[in-house]
Design a protein around this nucleic acid. Structure first.
Lengths: 105, 105
DNA sequence: CAGTATCCAAAAGGATACTG
DNA sequence: CAGTATCCTTTTGGATACTG
């Protein structure tokens, strides 16, 4: 974990954005369209969401499928890597929800 | 998780830095001095480490204890909240180490 | 619908030197 | 030892308008 060459560092770097973990959480329930993800995240601009999704895709957490239609239907889905990250993130979420009293902010 | 008012967002925001999760990992084994944490993290500058620690402290993930001596001995330790976050982070680390082949970078 | 383009402000990161 | 101070670059985030 502490070693510079540990792959965990890369995973953490990608998860480090303000929205990355939230996007993974939003996709936990299955493939979602761009607009749906944006709505579920409450407050993310299209530009930032696009950048976040592209990076998650680049690192292999998410896949993007374009269904040829007019207008295009684009769905984002977790990969195995994405689901692997989603587990611990869900656990963190559950733990926090059960210990809100510990939060200082 | 998706709601703006969910405390998970705050937790994720703090964990969002490049070094935050790493610092929590470094403190998992018990209280550590500033210099030790810096060495274990490999590559963090004192300024950035200080900022990271201050923020973790501010949000209640870490405590800072100064032992009066010359030179001062300063130890950082996880709080209950910090340990609560450390669990899922350790799980993520273990999962990643067992599935390095999935990593694209 | 699913983005891109543009502009800007703020935050984060990093190197190095210095101090009680 | 445990930071601060300084300077600078890169990244991130956000608002808004526009397009195939």
């Amino acid at each position: 974990m502490y070693a510079v060459l540990c792959p965990c560092r890369d995973v953490l770097d990608v998860l480090a954005g303000k929205w990355s973990a939230l996007v993974i959480g939003a996709l936990e329930s299955g493939p979602q369209r761009f607009g749906v993800v944006q709505k579920r995240l409450e407050g993310v601009s299209p530009k930032v969401l696009t950048r976040t999704l592209r990076r998650l895709e680049e690192y292999g957490f998410v896949t993007c499928t374009v269904f040829p239609a007019v207008p295009a239907r684009v769905e984002y889905e977790l990969t195995d890597l994405g689901r692997g990250a989603a587990g611990p993130l869900a656990q963190l979420r559950e733990w926090v929800e059960g210990h809100v009293d510990l939060m200082r902010r």
